[in-house]
Design a binder for these strands. Sequence first.
DNA 1: CTGAAAGCGCTTACAG
DNA 2: CTGAAAGCGCTTACAG
Lengths: 329, 329
Amino acid sequence: MSYQTVSRVINDSPNVSATSRTAVQDAIDLLGFRPNRAARALAGGPVQSVTVFTSNTTLYGFSAALEGIEEATREVGFQMGVRVVEERAEASRAAVEHALEPGSSVIVIAFDRAGAQALTWVPREVPTVAMIQAPTALAPARSSVWLDETAAAKRATAYLLSLGHATVHHLPIPSWPRATPRMEGWRAALEESGVVPPEPLQPGWTAQWGYEIGRQLVGNPGVTALLCGNDDMALGVLRAMREAGCEVPGDISIVGFDDIPAARYLSPALTTVRQDFKALGKVAFAHLLELSNSSRRMPAIATPIAELIIRESTGPPLGSRAAGMQAAQ
Amino acid sequence: MSYQTVSRVINDSPNVSATSRTAVQDAIDLLGFRPNRAARALAGGPVQSVTVFTSNTTLYGFSAALEGIEEATREVGFQMGVRVVEERAEASRAAVEHALEPGSSVIVIAFDRAGAQALTWVPREVPTVAMIQAPTALAPARSSVWLDETAAAKRATAYLLSLGHATVHHLPIPSWPRATPRMEGWRAALEESGVVPPEPLQPGWTAQWGYEIGRQLVGNPGVTALLCGNDDMALGVLRAMREAGCEVPGDISIVGFDDIPAARYLSPALTTVRQDFKALGKVAFAHLLELSNSSRRMPAIATPIAELIIRESTGPPLGSRAAGMQAAQ
DNA sequence: CTGAAAGCGCTTACAG
DNA sequence: CTGAAAGCGCTTACAG
């Protein structure tokens, strides 16, 4: 019953007799033995930790994703490390290289530019899965996961159109290297209805930004419906409208994206697209597991379905024929 | 120029000639050499990683604290691991024991019961600092950090009283093992003004809970001012009031706690107590550093100052003599 | 199926 | 001040 045998049962080696296996297992349970991770890693044992790179741990989508990853790692006894990355190339590179350890694996939350940047610095040989906005956006040859935001944005836009709005404006989250899927979906819905998409507003992430943009929008009769790139911005827009005495949804309908916990408690409660980033985080980790254990790639696949949650911030435009339509519904 | 010498310069050993030191350093820089953490840990090198235990990575206070810790660790090249802990004793214990590695250190975000529980399982010998609600609450003989929430709650309550409210009600976050400092401050302010504190409402954490409680409060003329244990609950209360047609602050003044990013964009913008959990996270890590390097304890000390942010959700009670006072201000 | 051997990359006493 | 030695706790070929 040498320590090699112990190592074998811990690592599920097939070359152990049933007798030894149970004997060792019993001893392990009895003593509460826990193999030293540092030693395992040093000796070239299997990966058992993930480092997640993210540009933000506070924004809803990011922290929900993190939450999902954490839960998944906990279930299989993986350690989870977190490293925040900035957009500046050198800082990003330093952060990634510093954090990378032999025998580790990584998930990068590459929803934004900083995340995508970080992905760049991760060597090919380390098992990696990226959480991205859309499949074409980046990460060729990297395993990645995403939500179908294009379809969701399209659906939300179509809904607004169906309410009777002549057009729908869009306050996007930052795009790179090309339009975000949320913007593509918005544009597609408009074009399918034969309306020329208006110029998108200046992109941002925060409530603050939404507020700024909202103030500029006030009193513009052309915009009666606005699809926001996320709920935080929608929140800011809502505030700007109220301050200016604009009714929501009377004067302008507003749709958010993500369904943050606060969304349904706003006044008016926010119509939004629910995105299950937590579930996506779990999916990402599941992929990572396959990558690192069997060392074989998995094709990128989509997962949880986004859902349009209709609440109070949307309605037919005032004084349009849609007002009549509403009664008919 | 053996590898021992390299080890010495990396670890700032004094026993190295200036010549060797620079020579080695140059080589390190040139080659981009990074010592293997697993090996260092195995050989008993200095701690260079923290794992933080927290019950939630999504609630504002928790995620802000995490953000602060992350930033601080990044600055000194520490690795940061995160493990979510539950309240159930066995689950908590398993999570903690699983996560603990020799040569690691820990910060536990012990704002709530689950966190306090986790703290229980961390062996004395591992360098640990706890982030807690108040110094007496727990963690005797543990290094810990906290914000002076008692003073802040007292100040907020006094402010409400000064507006002319006959009393102030309180919707607390969960207490254990005794009243939260927020509740103590609230109570103290009331007593100092000679008013008997009303029964606190049922404690909770979420907007959902605030909403439930808010609905119960509607139409109760006795409550004209409410101090909420956090902004999320305040958000829910706000919603309940609006639904019921109660004016805020006309019919009821509401104060939150924490100053979440959304607070100032609500309608009415939320009067609240700003708490810098991110800074507190940094302080926690600073303490940890001292603990682990010099192996000497630091006395627990308080840090960032909470600040009352007066916005729109508070005002004098309607129809009271305070209405006149307002004009006088 | 199961030991003995070698090595993962470091650090820390121990001799010079 | 600086090497040679031993060991941290594992894992993975290699012989039996």
